[in-house]
Amino acid sequence: MEYILQPWPWYVSGPLIALIMFSLLFFGKTFGMSSNLRTMCSISGAGKLVPFFKFDWKSQRWNLVVVFGAIIGGFIAHNFLSNPINIDLSQNTLADLKTLGFNNIGQSLLPPELFSWDAVFSIKGLLILVVGGFLVGFGTRYAGGCTSGHAITGLSSLQLPSLIAVVGFFIGGLIMIHFIYPILF
């Protein structure tokens, strides 16, 4: 039990993620979390305005069930399977975040500087979350997949489009962290 309560090492977590991808393929489906965003748009009636959302979303119900399960899994892991422990970040990361003005680094999953209600109700804080979320939602559909569809499933099946997309993920991420963060914080 003690091993379960500790954070899980990468060499346990990575293969388990592969197993999750494989089990969905075995069930005749595929691992793709961002597709649910399109499905949710369709359910909200976006198909009346845009043909892209006019499809039989009921065929995607299984994936919404995966999302529902993921929420439950997050609840279980956070409340019953975790010791309160600081995230074991590298010393360089701690120093860099301190320089950017972050405090209590790694004491929760998300930094209070961005996700506490105080931060959310400031204009800058709200803009960061809204712009970040918007770019994820736009980019993932443009690229035809996210981390699960391209980085895990696509690379595992040796598909060139997925490799190009993952290179894109890193171009964007590196630009954000190395060039835009120093301006934002």
């Binding site: 993921a70 997050g74 736009f138 954000m176």
Partner: peptide
Amino acid sequence: RYIAGGTIFGLGWALCGACPGPMYILVGTG
């Protein structure tokens, strides 16, 4: 589409620190 969409995705991923899977999961963590 892959390089441009991927780059846009990466900008957002790094900005809010969550891709679609973790977004749902974080709801469960409260």
